[in-house]
Amino acid sequence: MQLAHTLTAVARRNITMMKRYLFNTVSALISVYMVFCLAFFGMKAFAAASASRALDGTFEGTIVGFFVWTLAIFGYSGLSWELINEAQTGTLEQLYLSPAGFKWVCTFNLMVDFLVNVAAAVVFLFAMMATTGRWLNLDVASIAPLLIVTVLGAYGAGFALGGLALVFKRIQAFFQIVQFAFIGCLVIPWRIPWARFLPLSMGNGLIYRVMAEGKRLWELPAADVLTALAVGAAYLAVGLAVFSTCERAAKARGLLGHY
């Protein structure tokens, strides 16, 4: 019951904050959309010039890639920025005083944000499809589980960076490098044997097969789906382990309230 009140409080805070920072939220979406337009029209011009069909299917891949990337980035940055910001604005220690435990405050925050991010990413997805005129297969029952499996890796990275921020404080530069590394993970063809062990890669490939090739979840090779799940879970576990190690170090060195 107490947990329910904690969840309600976190949800209400996030929605309030989102309204207060509406400009930031919207401008983040618009800038991602503009980057997408650049990529799309660039590719289109290239395809026209080379008069080949080599890029067929790439548009779909780009849309799926951007869709997964925005979700991953929003999830990852939302989580680690949250920790960095809370430490800087001096509310982190108050969150640590929750009798539910900080991990629940964090989990609820993550869940609420995930729902909001999905809504934003779907709006973005429709914008991309409208812009390109390529309408993809939106099989929610197949996509939703794959999406969750895929972003697990991003949340793992978010926890790891958030943890490092507790101890090392100034890690903004590093934070952005990881953001770009995600693009790498999405661009690398996941059929390369080792690429499937990167975060996002495998899941992104599976989502592509659903959205662009019209496959259903159960038509996908079970081994691939399980690999994606195992990889995502492994990254999340590593991220959580890094986070708790850092948290312990921060408590031992008295760093929770510092910035």
């Binding site: 019951m1 107490q2 947990l3 009140h5 904690t6 309600t8 409080a9 976190v10 209400r12 805070r13 309030t16 904050m17 207060r20 920072y21 604005t89 001096g90 509310t91 220690e93 108050q94 969150l95 005083l97 929750s98 009798p99 539910a100 405050v105 309230g257």
Partner: peptide, 29 residues
């Protein structure tokens, strides 16, 4: 109330802060 830190969300109102911090404390608002 901890020393030196803000203890509050500056972007939320007095009332919203009260509701949030009592909420994560497990109180029904």
């Amino acid at each position: 109330v901890l020393e030196g830190s803000r203890n509050l969300y500056w972007r939320m109102s007095v009332w919203e802060n009260i509701e949030f911090f009592t909420g994560i404390h497990g109180l029904p608002r």
